[in-house]
């Protein structure tokens, strides 16, 4: 496979994952705005922060309003992580690696992009938001379904998966990084309704709301939330889960190519360290510091993959 193709696959699936993550954040924000008494536009600042798009937003806006925040995250071409920008990026990369994709996957990506350009051609009114978000989610699911159902399990698939899980791990870690203080043990804040909103934001932002309830009933405890998102092996968006997937897929490349490059050793190292982590140790190490360290490790790993598999010249 061409290094360029590996690069294109990696980014195509990163962008797809990003489009989903961003749209999930919009839905979370909207849900909280509608269901929480006393929720205000300041919640939207928190959503923008979670999406990591606050700075860009501030460059183009004087104040945070719900409409502006939603528009920025869904449609703005000036926001490289907006749903529309992400799907455009995914499709651009898909064109680049079209020979590596099955017909089904290409058509699903192309259709997702074409639908998004239609759905997001104009500002989305509040009334249409659920419908539009539903369609985008469904389109993204079709791409994922076509990928699972039709792609060979070879290096093409591995690079797609590595991109997916690096983006996902990055997303989960970033949400924790922005919101870590909400999860810190604090006598005054525990049990207050503010924290409950924040916790719910965190869980919904990574589609972990239902999963969390299944495991922990309805007892929202910050430590459990942190454990669930960092260490849980069943939760498909936890750091540990993502890291293991990355290590596995790099491992398949190792067996396919017969060569064990530095990126595999890095991933193996990161993954193995999770065996020794427990949530109390993480809190005493410092939740914020821990998350920062994971973000750095993931970013270094991404760079090493680029080098090992010759993404660029």
């Amino acid at each position: 496979m061409l290094g360029k193709t590996a690069n294109g696959l990696f980014w195509m699936y990163r962008y797809l994952e990003r489009a989903e993550n961003t749209s999930r954040l919009v839905e979370t924000g909207q849900r909280i705005a509608l269901t929480r008494m006393g929720a205000s536009d300041s919640e939207w600042r928190s959503v923008l922060q979670t999406a990591g798009v606050c700075d860009g937003f501030d460059m183009y806006h004087d104040a945070v309003t719900k409409e502006a925040a939603i528009d920025w995250m869904l449609r703005s071409r000036d926001n490289p992580s907006s749903v529309l920008s992400s799907l455009t990026g995914a499709r651009q990369n898909a064109r680049l690696v079209r020979t590596a994709l099955t017909h089904e996957v290409w058509e699903a990506v192309n259709a997702a992009y074409m639908d998004a350009t239609t759905l997001l051609a104009r500002r989305v009114s509040e009334r249409d938001l659920p419908e539009v978000m539903g369609q985008i989610r469904q389109r993204a699911a079709l791409v994922r379904g076509a990928t699972h159902g039709t792609m060979l399990r070879n290096d093409i698939y591995d690079f797609a998966r590595i991109g997916t899980f690096l983006e996902r791990a990055d997303n989960t870690a970033r949400i924790l990084d922005v919101k870590y203080y909400v999860l810190l043990p604090s006598v005054t804040a525990v049990g207050s309704s503010i924290d409950n909103v924040q916790w719910e934001t965190i869980l919904r932002s990574v589609s972990a709301h239902g999963g969390f309830r299944m495991v922990y009933d309805n007892n929202f405890d910050p430590k459990d939330i942190a454990r669930f998102l960092i260490l849980d092996q069943r939760m498909p968006r936890s750091l540990r889960f993502c890291v293991r997937k990355i290590r596995d897929n790099l491992g398949y490349l190792v067996s396919g190519y017969g060569d064990r490059p530095p990126s595999w050793r890095m991933a193996d190292h990161i993954e193995r360290a999770f065996l020794s982590y427990d949530i109390d140790a993480i809190f005493s190490y410092g939740l914020h510091e821990f998350i920062r360290k994971q973000l750095t490790l993931l970013s270094d790993l991404g760079h090493q993959v680029e080098i090992d598999y010759r993404f660029y010249e």
Binding site: L2, G3, K4, T99, Y257, D259, Y309, R310
Partner: peptide, 21 residues
Amino acid sequence: ELVEGHDLAIVDGHVAMRTTM
């Protein structure tokens, strides 16, 4: 493979494409 100029180089007197391997 579908290649562009920057995927190619002359290696040991042959035209070669930069692959993941």
